[in-house]
């Protein structure tokens, strides 16, 4: 292998700006998508626990569609197909928006991840022993109170690891949005690589960004888990 390293070029114009913009896009996109995905996911997850078979079907339908079509295909559909299905004036309005790729990426990532969050919510709630429901009902709590005071606070603690790993998944998945023209950090790395042929340096920047964020999130979540830890219950995940 014959390769001369030149790390300092990463700090030169315009590469340093590409990196900054890439990082900003990745972080913005992931945080916003995570927030939307959590909201929709909790909604869909709760719908799937309802008694009404119609609501349950809607929830299941959503989850199966959005988790079984690869994210890249979903992004393409939002990017190439969705605008074509809009009525003419809406389509014109959509195309004249600033940052269509970013918006498309946001929709695609959020809806895809919401399906996964909904599954986590459901399995979190079903993991609560039936005896807990019986105990709550036996003291006269109604269904709403039982969820409000017993099921959700408990399920939330069980689900912290899953929810944080969903954030890391979104964060990594956001790299796929380079295919529809979002200049996130992996995209920035490929631009630098094709401009300078310095792949190792360029990809190292991207990799280190992901690894640094992953490590920070893991450390923060471990702290949060410890903070919310129920005394006496040890090592129970």
């Amino acid at each position: 292998m014959n390769y001369e390293f030149n790390w300092s070029m990463l700090l030169e114009e315009p590469y340093i700006d590409w990196i900054k913009e890439g990082l900003l896009n990745t972080v913005q996109l992931s945080l916003m998508a995570w927030f939307i995905a959590l909201t929709i996911g909790i909604l869909i997850g709760s719908i799937r626990m309802m008694k009404s078979p119609v609501l349950r079907f809607i929830g299941t339908f959503y989850v199966e569609i959005f988790r079984n079509i690869p994210l890249l295909v979903q992004l393409f559909i939002w990017f190439f197909v969705f605008p074509l299905l809009l009525p003419d004036d809406l389509m014109r309005a959509w195309n004249s928006l600033d940052g269509v790729p970013f918006l498309t990426a946001l929709i695609g990532l959020s809806l895809f991840t919401a399906a996964r969050v909904a599954e986590q919510i459901r399995s979190g709630i079903t993991s609560i022993p039936k005896g807990q429901f019986n105990a709550a009902f036996s003291t006269g709590l109604n269904t709403f109170q039982t969820y409000r005071f017993i099921v959700i606070p408990y399920a939330f603690r069980i689900m912290i690891p899953a929810i944080s790993s969903e954030f890391l998944t979104i964060f990594k998945n956001s790299a796929l949005t380079l295919t529809i023209g979002v200049a996130e950090i992996t995209a920035a790395a490929t631009y630098i690589e094709s401009d300078t042929f310095r792949g190792i340096e360029a990809y190292s920047v991207a990799s280190l960004s992901y690894m640094f964020t992953t490590a920070s999130v893991v450390i923060f979540m471990t702290w949060l888990e410890n903070f919310l830890r129920i005394p006496g219950l040890i090592g129970k995940k």
Partner: peptide, 19 residues
């Protein structure tokens, strides 16, 4: 719920709320 609140129940596995 009203009726149940007049009947106390004790379970084999306690079923205290862990949190």
């Amino acid at each position: 719920s009203q009726i149940r609140s007049n009947i106390g129940m004790v379970f084999q596995h306690f079923e205290l709320y862990p949190h």
